[in-house]
C-alpha cells in the first residue's frame, strides 16, 4: 500500500497544485464579491438591493454542480470560450460570494446600532465610523464563519473534476481507474483535503485571536 501511494504521490501533488490554485483564485473572488454584495445590501439604493437579493436567492437555491455544468455547456454557445480553470474559478468564486455576503452582512449587523450613534455624536462620518469603529469589531465576528465558508469552498472545488479540470479529485479518479485501489487512493485524497482544511481552521483560530480584543 505504501509503495502504491509513493508511486502515485507526484501525480497527486500535481492535482493538489491545481486545487490550491483554484482555491486561491475562487477564494479571493468570493471574498471581494461577497464584500461588495454585503455593502450593497446594507448601504445600496432600493433597486440595487433588490437585484442583489434576487441574485443571492438564486445562487443559494441552485446546486454548484448545476452552475458549473451550465457554464461548461452553455457559454461556448454564447461564443465565450474559457479554459476550465478560469471558468471554474469564476463560477465557484461567484457561488461562494453569496455565502460570504451573508457572513459579512451578519457580522456588520452584529455591531450594535448604538456604536453608530456614538460615532456620529463624536463627529465621525460613515467612512470614519466604518473604519475605526464598526469594521474592527465586525472582522472579529466574521472570522469563524468566514473560515467555515472557505472550507466549504475548498470542498466545492472538488466538483471541477467533473468538468475535466485535473484537480486532486480528478487525479484520484484516474489513478483508481488504473490501479483499482479505491480505498487507498480516495483515502489519500480525503487526507489531503483534510490537511488543507485543518490548516485553514488553524489559521481561523489564529485570526480570531489576532483580531480579538485583550480584556
Amino acid at each position: 500500500m505504501l509503495g502504491l501511494l509513493a508511486a502515485n504521490l507526484p501525480l497527486l501533488m500535481r492535482g493538489v497544485g491545481v486545487t490550491l490554485m483554484l482555491t486561491a483564485l475562487a477564494g479571493i473572488m468570493a471574498t471581494l464579491c461577497g464584500l461588495a454584495l454585503a455593502f450593497v445590501q446594507l448601504f445600496g439604493g432600493r433597486v440595487v438591493r433588490i437585484i442583489a437579493e434576487i441574485c443571492l436567492y438564486v445562487v443559494r437555491g441552485v446546486p454548484l454542480l448545476v452552475l458549473l455544468f451550465a457554464m461548461y455547456y452553455a457559454l461556448p454557445y454564447a461564443g465565450i470560450v474559457m479554459d476550465p480553470m478560469t471558468g471554474g474559478a469564476l463560477v465557484i468564486g461567484l457561488y461562494f460570494a453569496a455565502f460570504m455576503a451573508e457572513v459579512f452582512r451578519g457580522a456588520m449587523l452584529a455591531v450594535p446600532q448604538g456604536q453608530w450613534e456614538a460615532g456620529r455624536s463624536i463627529g465621525l462620518r460613515t467612512p470614519g465610523i466604518l473604519r475605526h469603529i464598526v469594521l474592527p469589531q465586525a472582522i472579529r465576528v466574521a472570522s469563524p464563519p468566514y473560515i467555515n465558508t472557505v472550507i466549504m469552498l475548498v470542498k466545492g472545488t472538488s466538483l471541477v473534476s467533473v468538468i475535466g479540470l485535473s484537480d486532486v479529485t480528478f487525479v484520484g479518479v484516474q489513478i483508481v481507474e488504473r490501479t483499482l485501489a479505491p480505498f487507498e487512493i480516495f483515502g489519500a485524497v480525503a487526507v489531503i483535503y483534510f490537511l488543507i482544511n485543518f490548516a485553514l481552521s488553524r489559521c481561523g483560530i489564529w485570526l480570531e485571536r489576532k483580531t480579538g480584543f485583550v480584556h
Binding site: T169, A190, F194
Partner: peptide, 22 residues
C-alpha cells in the same frame, strides 16, 4: 471532523468504488 473537512464527492467515490471493490 473527518467528514466535515473532506468533500462529499470524494466520500461518494470512496464508498461507491471502495465497497464494490470489497
Amino acid at each position: 471532523e473527518i467528514v466535515r473537512n473532506t468533500p462529499i464527492l470524494v466520500q461518494m467515490y470512496f464508498i461507491f468504488f471502495g465497497l464494490s471493490m470489497a
